[in-house]
Structure formats: C-alpha cells, structure tokens
Amino acid sequence: MAALSTAPMPVWRRLLRSGTVRTLGPFVPVVVLWWLLAAFEVFPRSFFAGPTAVLTTLGGLLEKGILPGYLSDSLTRLAYGVGFGLLIGLPLGFAVAMIGRLRRFCWPILLFFQAIADIAWLPIVIVWFGFSLTAVTFVIVYTIVFPLMLSVVAGVEQVPRELVRAARSLGAGRWRVFVEVIVPGSLPSVAGGIRTGLGYGWRALVAAEIIVGTSGIGYMMFDARRVGDISQVFLGMVVLGSLWYALDALILAPFERATVERWGMVRRLEADG
C-alpha cells in the first residue's frame, strides 16, 4: 500500500491539474469547431471569419496602433463608469438598507429602473449629452448602480440579527455596529453585486460605443460591419470576451471568493461557540 501511495502521478493527471490547462482547455474545442466551420465554409466567408483571418486582422491592427488606441478608450470609459457607479451605488445601497423609511420610499423606484434596459436610455442620452464620454459614462453608471444597490440591500438583510444584538449589548454604538458588523457581514453579497454590475457595465459599454461612441472596441466592431470587414467584428468579440475573462478571473472572482470565505469563517466560529 505504501508503494502504491508513493507512485508518481500520471502525466495526463498532472496536466489536468495544471492551471493553464484548466483555464485554456475549455476553449480548445470551441476554437477547433470555429476553425472547422470556417475551413469547410459552412457559412459564406463574407459572413463568417475563421481564426486565421482574425489573427491576421489582429496583427494588422496592432501594427497600425489602432487596436491599442481603441482598447485604451474603452477601458478609460469603463473606469469612469465603474468609479462613479461604485461611488453612487454603495453609499445609496447601504442608506436604503439601513433606513427603513428611505427603503419603503425607494424600493419601488429601484425595481422600476432596474427593469429598464440601459440601451433604452441611449436615444435620450444622445439628446442630453451628444456623442461624448459623458453619454457613455451615464449609461455605464446607470447599468451598475441599480443591481449593486439591490445586492447591498440583500447583503444587509443576510446579516444575522443576533450578531447585531450581541454587539449592541457589549456597548457598541450604531456607527460601530455598522462598520464592524453590518459591512463585513454584507460583503459577500456586495462582492457578488460588484461582479454582476461590472458585467452589466461591460456590455453596456459595448452597446453605447456602437451607438454613441466615436472610438473604442464597440465602435470598431460597428464600423467594421459598415465596411464589410467581418474579421474585425469577430476580433472585437474575442477581445471583449478575453478581457472580461481576465478581469473576472484575476480580480473579481478572487475578491468575491475571499469575502465569502471570510464570512464563512465568522459563521463557523459563531456556530462552534
């Protein structure tokens, strides 16, 4: 038995446990299917670009500096929208969650505007702000704020009331209870809301750039469609998907996982006590 336990792990199993394989492996059959559809011309080439054509387009846009410029514009707009969205959504979310009268007044309004898609605002936003950074930022902020506020309210509701009562019985004031109990306890839901809101904001950015923007990845895709360069449209989708996957895997998912694990530790300690 000892000899069996010390036997070397098979190569295929080591590969399956590799982070690179687990990250990129699921995309291999997708790329193979994509390549086969293009190679056998299941769809006309004018309507469907294969991986080879997309890579050629990528090299050309990188060499000309077009793609880095568009990408920089998109990320700048996203940063503005996310920054303002968090600055607005987090304080308002906690205020609505903590103040009963404010919640009763605002809750129907939150549900109403949550149901209105961001793209529905684009016609009036163009009238208000024109084809500007402000118009795109407004759409992203609108898309992020409402799901974030709803997540904050849900997170505050999930905080066990016995923890709040225990803190107050030990002499903690309202502010200390909020900072040391409410905020940490609601962080898992808040982290999920941030992750979801940024996903919505990312899609809103692309929609706004297609209709409002004069640069950016969304604009590149729309302009390519206008001139009939379908490979740029496919390239834009690949870039958007890759960037969001990297952002989610490197920042958002670890942040959400860390907050959930931290709260889980608190709950387990509470149960043990």
Rank of each mutant, 00 (worst) to 15 (best):
2 A>S: 09
2 A>W: 05
5 S>Q: 13
10 P>I: 00
13 R>A: 14
14 R>C: 02
14 R>W: 11
18 S>W: 03
19 G>W: 08
20 T>V: 15
25 G>S: 12
26 P>R: 13
30 V>D: 03
30 V>A: 12
34 W>T: 05
34 W>M: 03
35 W>S: 03
39 A>Q: 13
39 A>M: 11
41 E>G: 13
41 E>V: 10
49 A>K: 05
53 A>P: 04
54 V>S: 03
54 V>R: 02
57 T>K: 15
63 E>I: 11
65 G>M: 04
66 I>Q: 08
69 G>W: 04
70 Y>I: 04
72 S>P: 07
73 D>L: 09
74 S>Y: 01
75 L>R: 05
76 T>L: 02
80 Y>C: 06
81 G>S: 01
82 V>N: 07
88 I>Q: 02
88 I>P: 02
89 G>A: 02
89 G>L: 00
91 P>A: 04
99 I>Q: 14
100 G>D: 15
101 R>H: 10
102 L>P: 12
102 L>S: 10
103 R>E: 15
105 F>M: 13
106 C>Y: 11
108 P>W: 13
111 L>F: 02
115 A>C: 08
116 I>A: 01
118 D>A: 15
124 I>T: 11
129 F>D: 06
135 A>E: 12
135 A>Y: 14
136 V>T: 14
137 T>K: 04
138 F>V: 08
139 V>W: 07
140 I>E: 00
143 T>S: 15
146 F>M: 07
146 F>E: 00
151 S>P: 00
151 S>H: 11
152 V>F: 11
153 V>C: 09
156 V>C: 08
157 E>G: 04
158 Q>A: 15
159 V>K: 01
159 V>Q: 00
160 P>L: 03
162 E>P: 07
163 L>M: 11
168 R>C: 08
168 R>K: 08
169 S>G: 05
169 S>K: 10
170 L>C: 12
172 A>G: 10
172 A>E: 04
173 G>K: 10
174 R>C: 05
176 R>C: 07
178 F>A: 00
188 P>G: 02
191 A>P: 05
195 R>Q: 03
197 G>P: 07
202 W>A: 09
204 A>D: 09
204 A>M: 01
206 V>N: 07
207 A>V: 13
208 A>T: 02
214 T>P: 07
214 T>L: 13
217 I>A: 05
219 Y>P: 06
220 M>T: 09
224 A>F: 06
227 V>L: 12
227 V>E: 12
233 V>Y: 10
233 V>T: 14
234 F>I: 12
234 F>L: 10
235 L>I: 05
239 V>A: 02
240 L>M: 12
242 S>M: 13
244 W>G: 03
245 Y>C: 14
246 A>N: 06
248 D>I: 14
249 A>T: 15
252 L>S: 12
252 L>Q: 10
255 F>R: 07
260 V>I: 11
265 M>L: 13
268 R>Y: 03
270 E>S: 11
270 E>A: 12
271 A>D: 08
271 A>T: 01
271 A>L: 08
